[in-house]
Each structure stands twice: as C-alpha cells, then as structure tokens.
Amino acid sequence: MVKIHVDMSLCEFHGQCVFIAPKEFRFEGDDLVYSEEVDEEHRARVERAAKACPQLAIKVE
C-alpha cells in the first residue's frame, strides 16, 4: 500500500494535487480531503502529485 500524508500546516490549497491525482485528492468546500492509503498501482500518480505540490506538503511512503 502507498501511504499519503499531507502536512496541513503547510498546505495552501493551490490544488495541484487535485488536478494531477483527482481520485486521491479533492476539495470539499475549502478543505482538502485525501486518501491516506491507496493501492500500489497508483504510486506513480500520487508521487507526481507530491512533486507538484508548490509547498512540498505531501509525503508519500
């Protein structure tokens, strides 16, 4: 499994992750909601979303 953690003290809601990996990240109102665990097959997409985060707030394990 791929573990996702977003440091919400850094997140500024630029939404690049939502754009790149909409299945794992989405906005609900003004909040960012994300899957904490996803299948290994989605790793590449999730890592790309983490790399795209302007604030480097997303950690993927």
Binding site: L10, E12, F13, H14, G15, P54, Q55, L56
Partner: peptide
Amino acid sequence: RGRHACVGQT
C-alpha cells in the same frame, strides 16, 4: 517551489 512558492499562483 517549496516554502516561497508564489502565493498567488492559483
């Protein structure tokens, strides 16, 4: 990128 990434980019 990172801490100083443009705050107005969106």
